[in-house]
């Protein structure tokens, strides 16, 4: 379970050094878009050395490798040998590229005696949005991250503050993930210094059903974590509902502050408390 994933460019040593300090639930070490083609080898070496040498890891390590059809893809996967990577983030994910990754992961798991490597799929093309339900069913996929910038390039449209142009894509990702019990992860907000816009964007995504959001700057994490966590009001409501449910065992429904509470709402309350506990929110 996670609320926030922070992208850190693989060739940025000062950010990598502080990867465990930032309040992200997980860190995505990026070898793809944020790393220039001339820097690919350096970045891979840097991340490799970091994962091998450091004693201060982030709580969850994700590696964004290069696309399956590049010369870097297999070299990037070689970092699995460190045994420190929790997830591979597959860019331009689709059914076909997931198949290629699957073959390689089976190979590396055997070679390095690793337990099953999980995958986050980055869907960022029109084709991927159409086949997102198939992607979500893949046994290794535990989350789907929407990449809105590349998607909009594919659609030859621009981005708006409101995000109406990605409503369909967001909804497809959310429903695909929810129906397969995996995590939907919203596209990063590129307005690094506009906190109000980030807050609005997070609320919009959360209200649609996104469960987490990616960040491209550490300063975005506090707002993301706040919005994708249960609020104090939610937690109080959940505690009250659970208490009342315990006091009303055997009753199918009961009333709380003038509203009817039944099983779906009790389950919702239990989920809120579970999330709050995981993220140590009281």
């Amino acid at each position: 379970m996670f609320r926030s994933l922070l992208f850190i460019p693989g060739n940025n040593p000062s950010m990598i050094q502080n990867a465990d300090v930032f309040p992200a639930d997980g860190v995505i070490f990026d070898l793809e878009d944020s790393v220039d083609i001339k820097e690919k080898d350096n970045a891979r070496n840097l991340i490799g050395n970091y994962l091998t040498e450091t004693s201060t890891y982030p709580s969850m390590v994700v590696l964004r490798v290069n696309q399956v059809d590049t010369e870097f893809f297999e070299k990037d996967l070689g970092l699995l040998a460190t045994g420190k990577i929790d997830y591979i983030l597959l860019p331009k994910a689709g059914v076909d590229s997931l198949g290629i990754l699957e073959e390689k992961l089976v190979e590396y798991e055997k070679q390095y005696d690793l337990s099953e490597i999980k995958v986050l799929a980055l869907v960022e093309s029109a084709k991927a949005i159409i086949e997102v339900f198939k992607i979500a069913k893949h046994k290794r996929v535990e989350g789907i991250l929407l990449g809105a910038e590349d998607l909009c390039n594919d659609l030859e449209i621009g981005r708006s503050d409101e995000g109406t142009e990605i409503l369909f894509a967001r909804s497809r990702v959310i429903y695909a993930c929810a129906s397969n019990n995996i995590v939907s992860i919203d596209t990063p907000n590129t307005s690094i210094s506009d906190e109000a816009h980030l807050r609005k964007d997070c609320l919009n995504a959360k209200n649609l059903g996104m469960k987490a959001k990616s960040a491209i700057h550490p300063n975005q994490l506090e707002i993301i974590n706040e919005i994708f966590s249960p609020s104090k009001k939610d937690i109080e409501w959940a505690k009250d509902v659970i208490k009342l449910a315990e006091d009303n065992i055997g009753k199918g429904a009961f009333s709380y502050k003038g509203k009817m509470i039944d099983k779906p709402l009790i389950l919702k309350a239990e989920k809120i408390i579970e999330i709050a506990k995981q993220f140590k929110i009281s």
Partner: peptide, 8 residues
């Protein structure tokens, strides 16, 4: 500062 470490 905009540096996340400084802000923390």
């Amino acid at each position: 500062t905009k540096d996340p470490i400084g802000l923390k």
